[in-house]
Amino acid sequence: MTDHHESNTGPAECGPSQPDRRTFMATAAGVTAALVAPGVIMHSVAGPRTEAVTSDVRWGLLVDTAKCADGCSACIEACDRENGLDLQTQPSGAQPTRWENQKSVWIRKVKLQDNQTGRVTNLPLMCQHCEHPPCVDVCPTGASFKRADGIVLVDRHTCIGCRYCMMACPYKARSFVHEVMSNQLTRVPRGKGCVESCTLCVHRRDYGEESTACVDACQAAGHEAIIFGDLKDPESPIRMRLAELASRQIREDLALNTGVRYAGF
């Protein structure tokens, strides 16, 4: 799947400047590279991305709520570890109950019961990566943006911390960093005064990995309730599953065309 869709990063189809670089690298590898430094060595596996993402793919998730186990929090713990959210510490002097509502949460479990039928549903809830994200519409500086491959992100360099995106998000998917940070992970920069949310493990996308932390964890826990993949590729596992299962979007009425779909409730 990744090969098919990230073929534009592979050696075969590089931008116009790339072949020059590569032939150069082939002949003048080693010491001289240090001086002229074109810098990029292509890997046969999908390595670090060299070309900007395109809209040829649209990343998304499918959650099969029938398989989402009550009381399981594997996806949440995995997300916290992956993105360094487990390194958040309660500032000394903070009131614990308030802090619970102030620390960042990118994914959470929700347990629902139908008022009429009493049927209980468990599901993980995170940024829904809308095609028409309200958070992007309202952001005054354009810091909140949708990447070409459908991932909704915050550019922390231009985020001024106004939190209007949090007001606009129908899923309460975003968190504001309320405290000074000092022990971030290299792959997930995060700091005081900016808004953040699920990135669909964007670093994994850019280094050509298959899936997301939550999906891996759910699989490892034996549930396989979440599938990650390319919503634009009819052959992808997520699309094949979507073709079989009846699924829906949360707040379908808003017509946001979410990238995260739910089945089974």
Partner: peptide
């Protein structure tokens, strides 16, 4: 009250015109 008040200059130079907030500036 902004999370990053020192970036006011960003708010004054980078605009997203779909945002009613930017219009308000």
């Amino acid at each position: 009250d902004l999370g990053r008040p020192e970036r006011l200059v960003v708010a004054m130079t980078t605009y997203n015109f779909r945002s009613i907030f930017a219009w308000n500036i």
